[in-house]
Simulated assay, not measured.
Amino acid sequence: MIFAATFILGALLGCVGAGGAGLTITLLTVGFGIPIHTAIAVSLSCMTFTVLSGAVSHYREREVLLKLGLSVGIAGIVGALLGTRTAFLIPGNLLAPATAIMLLLTTALLYLQLFLPHLIADYVARNKSSATGATFYIRSAVIGLVTGFLSGAFGIGATAFIQISLMLFFGISLYHAIGTTMMIIFPIAAAGGLSYLAGGMMDSSVFFQTLAGLTLGAFIGAKFTHMIPKEYLRYLMISMPLIGGLILLMY
């Protein structure tokens, strides 16, 4: 049943091009009664594999900024480990609504990025020339620590947080932000997943079913993306974390 459900979810996510870490957590906890800590562990571990192919693809398209990705990703590992250790101390009845709130914040950031890019355009342009020398590494460390912590503690990919941070504080284009974010998420997800595994919160059966369902579903769903008008894709992309956050919050 978990495989079937995550296959359908993966097809939807693949169709609209969304990451779906938060929706995966919502599905596992609300739909199957899996403890929130285990659901986060499974979500992070699955992300390790799903973002790898995306990162390689973006690298081949020259949309990955290696220096930026490495500096933020290394700091993100530290943040993810701190986040998982913090999550271990939070009771499930508090961690679930906190994760839901993070999904709603993700929705807000996606809305800003997709519908109101002109509001940040000037700020992005100003920071393009200032992110050099020590400033480059300080900003990289702060962004990596914060987004890594959010991923480790709440199981979300923090994709929207990373992308908009890279654009705001490094002045890079949206395409480079998307590609570099894929590279950054990989070490963060790997570190977080391994930390939950070491903490004894991983369910291998749930993990393999979820990974298989999401991977196969996303592969098939991606083939139907071109059938959806572009003006509707934006609304579908922000609806995913919104629905997941609201369901988890009510639950």
Rank of each mutant, 00 (worst) to 15 (best):
L248G: 01
L116K: 15
G171R: 12
T84N: 13
L110S: 08
S57K: 09
G19R: 07
Y175M: 08
A75S: 15
A39D: 04
A222S: 15
F154E: 03
S45Q: 00
A75I: 09
L145Y: 00
M201G: 00
F169H: 11
R62P: 05
Y235E: 09
G192E: 03
G144E: 03
L82H: 03
A98E: 08
S57M: 10
I101D: 04
F115K: 15
T50N: 13
G20C: 08
T132I: 13
P97N: 09
A100V: 03
A87Y: 07
V124D: 03
G245A: 08
F88K: 11
L65T: 00
R62D: 10
I138A: 13
S130R: 14
N93S: 14
R139E: 05
T84P: 06
F3V: 05
P35F: 02
F170A: 07
L168N: 11
L249W: 08
A189D: 02
I8W: 12
F154D: 05
A96S: 14
L105I: 13
V78K: 02
T29V: 15
M202L: 15
T86H: 10
I178C: 05
R234P: 01
I25V: 15
G19P: 12
V78I: 15
F224S: 13
G76N: 03
G33S: 06
G20H: 08
I120T: 15
R60V: 01
I143S: 08
A100H: 04
I101W: 06
I162Y: 05
A41S: 11
F161K: 02
L27A: 12
T6D: 11
F186C: 06
G155L: 03
L194Q: 02
L12S: 12
G54M: 03
V146D: 02
A125Q: 14
I40M: 08
F149W: 13
Y235L: 11
M240Q: 12
T26R: 07
G92V: 04
T99L: 14
Y232C: 06
L81S: 00
A189Y: 05
T210K: 00
L9Y: 10
L197K: 06
T106M: 15
F32E: 03
G244L: 07
G76M: 12
L12D: 02
G200K: 02
Y196R: 05
I238F: 11
I8T: 09
F219P: 02
L66K: 06
M102G: 07
V124H: 12
A21M: 12
E63I: 00
K67N: 13
L44T: 00
L105D: 00
G155W: 00
V51K: 10
G152Q: 01
L52P: 02
G200A: 08
E63N: 12
T180G: 02
L246Q: 05
L214E: 01
Y111A: 15
F136N: 04
A55K: 04
A4D: 06
Y137P: 04
G76V: 09
H118V: 09
G148L: 07
F32R: 09
